[in-house]
Nucleic acid binder design. Structure first.
Lengths: 309, 309
DNA sequence: CATAAGCATCAGATATGCTGATGCTTCATG
DNA sequence: CATGAAGCATCAGCATATCTGATGCTTATG
């Protein structure tokens, strides 16, 4: 049986050309075929739609669309226009200028580098819609990646199995204290011995942090825990205690707190951007990763300077 | 070079099936192909769009659309829906239930049988738009047919070269007089000798009419001519004279005039419906012709009765 | 480690599609 | 009225595309 889905775009193109140029031979010239080929194509088209599309008056006269041919041509042209439009869309998609991007993120990224990244990205590709999923649970970020809910996500530490990633920056742990509480510059971990501490609730980064302190023989005494970075800083300012936090979780410009490197240095947390391994990324995601990489490299450089100051 | 117009609908169907069923093999089953064929079809699709549409994780896992594949599938489904819709439209067109119909006509048809015809036609095919072109110039009707402005037209007398036609009815010439002016029934043409006459301006039908009168030895004396049938009747009613007119140009029900057959009978004018020869008619036009034929046959029968009465 | 599920690839058969030649039809022209 | 020219259909032959069936590779599962 012959169904409308057997319709071929080439045949519509031929129909268009013949209708436009009046004769099979002229259309063939334009299309780069022989007259015979066009004749056969139109015949095939007429077979699939089960109707004559041209009246052939015979002799040296132009062919003429039948009423059926007219409606087919009108609709066919519309179809071809849509196909061409699809082609353009696909081109733009391939270049990363069209599409939809889902990104998993967490607070310290969202509040520091992400605005810059998104700003640059939107500047380059304003027609890519971006959807951000922020969570403070490490596992949720992984789950979202694996389920496809997010295409890329910022992750801390080692990436889970089944994910690929690109390293973005190493975020150093710094001490947050009140101005004047410690002499400017590096603070020996031993000097924290009697300080009450503010920290985050148990997460990969907090564990890393505490492990680093204990490795230097300091058993921290936590008097308050919050996963909200602003709350941690506020508690320090209020005199509840000091905090050891990743630099990106702090507000270096805030004059009401003072930041210090520690001695010995606690190995910083690794921040990467990750995606499901084996999954082809959208060009938009590739571009996003590139931009992210650049922005993080830059801020990581300036961040180092900031800590020195 | 490969362009988007090389896209094949079959490939979109395959894409859809694989995306829906998860594996090439299952899709192949549904489509009635082998797994190998589907694999090659998807490969061909990927070649024409120059991008992978599926991630094949390998092993006994389902394939998964790439982001590119997702947008292609979305648009492809839209395209297929449109193609299917086109199929339905074409079906309806083939059945005569969709399209556009242009009809050339003239006053006596427009005011008598045409309303009935159009009414019946619209009842059967309400989605066919009808456009009527009314003119009192015989040639204009022919020209419109030849130029394609109208697809079918009512014509009087012999059809011009290049037209085909179907005979509809023979419209007899009758005498229009005031009631009581002549005894009921047939009026001998000789009795018109001293009557002033009302007629139409020179057209094929008026010529036929005058020729008929002269053939019976009557040289008519026209005191007024109009191509508007209502005006002719009105002049008769006003006592300006009598008129010999085709029956369809009269108003048999009007008690203010009386109709008479003539003796000898003047051969009636032939009314046909015509179209350009060699041109395939739209199914709607075919249906219109059929309906017209039926309606005219019926009215021609009742018209004969009317003249008798 | 063996098995099963799944896709790619290959070779071969078949179908499709194009070319070039030829024939038929019709109009125009001498 | 005969002839030439323009135009489409058709045919045979060749090239290409496409499908099948077999086979091999990969990976998850038990």
């Amino acid at each position: 049986m012959t169904t409308i889905r057997d319709l071929e775009l080439r045949h519509l193109v031929a129909l268009d050309a013949v209708a436009t140029h009046g004769t099979f031979a002229r259309a063939a010239d334009v299309l780069g075929y022989t007259q015979s080929a066009v004749s056969q194509q139109i015949a095939a088209l007429e077979r699939t739609v089960d109707a004559k599309v041209f009246d052939r008056p015979g002799g040296p006269r132009s062919v003429e669309l039948t009423p059926f041919g007219e409606v087919l041509l009108e609709r066919g042209r519309d179809l071809l226009r849509r196909v061409d439009a699809l082609g353009h869309e696909l081109d733009r998609f391939r270049e990363g200028h069209l599409g939809h991007l889902t990104v998993g993120t967490f607070q310290s990224i969202s509040s520091t580098v992400l605005p810059v990244i998104v700003g640059r990205f939107r500047e380059m590709s304003p027609d890519v819609s971006i959807q951000l999923f922020e969570t403070d649970a490490d596992e949720a970020l992984n789950d979202q990646l694996m389920s496809g809910e997010t295409e890329v996500a910022f992750v801390v530490g080692d990436v889970a199995e089944g994910l690929e990633s690109r390293h973005l920056l190493t975020d150093p742990f710094v001490l947050i204290a009140r101005p004047g509480q410690f002499p400017a510059g590096v603070v020996p971990i031993a000097d924290l011995a009697r300080e009450p501490m503010i920290g985050q609730r148990e997460n990969s980064c907090q564990l890393l942090n505490e492990a680093g302190l204990r490795a230097s023989g300091h058993e921290p005494n936590y008097v308050f825990r919050s996963n909200d970075n602003g709350t941690v800083s506020a508690m320090v300012r209020a005199g509840m205690g000091v905090a050891v936090m990743p630099l990106l979780c702090t507000e270096p410009e805030d004059p009401r707190t003072s930041l210090h490197d520690l001695d010995p240095v606690i190995p910083g947390r690794n921040v990467s951007i990750a995606w499901r391994s084996g999954r082809t990324l959208s060009p938009a995601a590739e571009a996003f990763i590139d931009i992210t990489s650049e922005v993080c490299a830059a801020t990581s450089a300036t961040a180092d300077l900031a800590t020195v100051g």
